[in-house]
């Protein structure tokens, strides 16, 4: 789509574009190309010299058992958060779609956690499940369950998943509710006339019609879990105990900063970039398909 009536201008359009292009080139393209370039270099221990080592950083990366652990943790973490936050949000959205009295109040009370910073969400959940202070950890321990997310990797994972889901449900809820409200009532009524009960109608009519929304949310949620949950992990577990919550993004951060392995960290950044670009491409292909319907 293009405008048919436009201005003539030789210099003005470039001036208008200049601020955005300058910022983009300085803070996007330059660092991104640096990351790619660095992934082919190895710095000496003092960071004074670097030499071109070709694909060595990548070979070293994929020879590291820790990297496969981090990939595994990322897969487990993102699947748990995505499935749980989508499922819970869909349950609440179907309930809120029933034209209840005070529905808008419920909606407001449902969506506010979106505004809470991931790191803060992490701190809140860490506090109530803190092994000695936690309001909810004490009953667990009193029942004889040795709850300790600071020592037990599985417990730590459960904790970061809970915090991440808590924050993400709000977003999914909003989009599911909008999706549900866009389904024509006549279709559902037709199902009812044919004698389908509420559950049957949900699985055979509503859920399939909701699939574009679900697919869109699936991609958005995976990107969310990959990147935005960094704050939760850093605030709650710092990737521990013993690396059991170190996701791929966390490892980029930890290797570059604490380990000082810039080449390895850059190689990991490049792998992440490829994943993000693939996810975005999938999303756009889907958007285009939807437009052609």
């Amino acid at each position: 789509m293009e405008k048919s009536v436009v201005f003539n201008g030789k210099l003005l359009p470039y001036l208008l574009l200049a601020p955005q292009l300058a910022i983009t080139l300085i803070f996007f393209y330059w660092p991104a190309s640096q990351a790619i370039w660095q992934s082919f270099l190895r710095e000496d221990a003092f960071g004074l010299n670097s030499e071109f080592v070709g694909l060595e950083n990548y070979q070293a990366l994929f020879a590291q058992p820790e990297y496969y652990t981090a990939i595994g943790i990322t897969v487990v973490f993102s699947s748990l958060v995505t499935v749980l936050s989508l499922g819970v949000a869909l349950l609440f959205a179907t309930q809120a779609d029933k034209n209840l009295k005070g529905g808008s109040v419920y909606k407001t009370l449902m969506i506010w956690p979106y505004a809470v910073a991931p790191a803060i969400a992490g701190v809140l959940w860490f506090f109530i499940f803190h092994p000695t202070l936690g309001t909810l950890a004490r009953p667990l321990r009193a029942m004889g369950f040795d709850w300790n997310p600071m020592l037990n990797g599985t417990h730590a994972m459960i904790l970061v998943v809970m915090a991440a889901v808590w924050k993400q449900v709000a977003y999914n809820f909003l989009f599911f509710l909008a999706g549900l409200q866009a389904i024509p009532k006549s279709v559902i009524e037709a199902g009812a006339i044919d004698g389908a009960g509420p559950l049957r109608r949900f699985w055979t009519i509503i859920f399939p019609l909701l699939s574009p929304t679900t697919f869109f949310l699936l991609v958005v949620n995976i990107v969310y879990v990959f990147f935005e949950t960094f704050g939760i992990i850093d605030a709650v577990t710092s990737g521990g105990p013993a690396g059991s919550t170190t996701t791929m993004v966390y490892k980029v951060f930890a290797d570059g900063r604490l380990g000082g392995d810039l080449g390895g960290s850059a190689a990991q950044s490049v792998v992440l970039m490829v994943i993000v670009i693939a996810l975005t491409a999938i999303q756009f292909r889907y958007v285009e398909r939807k437009v052609q319907y």
């Binding site: 996007f28 330059w30 660092p31 991104a32 640096q34 990351a35 660095q38 990107v223 990959f226 990147f227 960094f230 993004v249 980029v252 951060f253 570059g256 900063r257 810039l262 960290s265 850059a266 950044s269 992440l272 970039m273 993000v276 670009i277 975005t280």
Partner: peptide, 10 residues
């Protein structure tokens, strides 16, 4: 396509 997280150190 490029969130801050993939290019933090550069």
């Amino acid at each position: 396509m490029l969130p801050v997280e993939v290019r933090i150190y550069p």
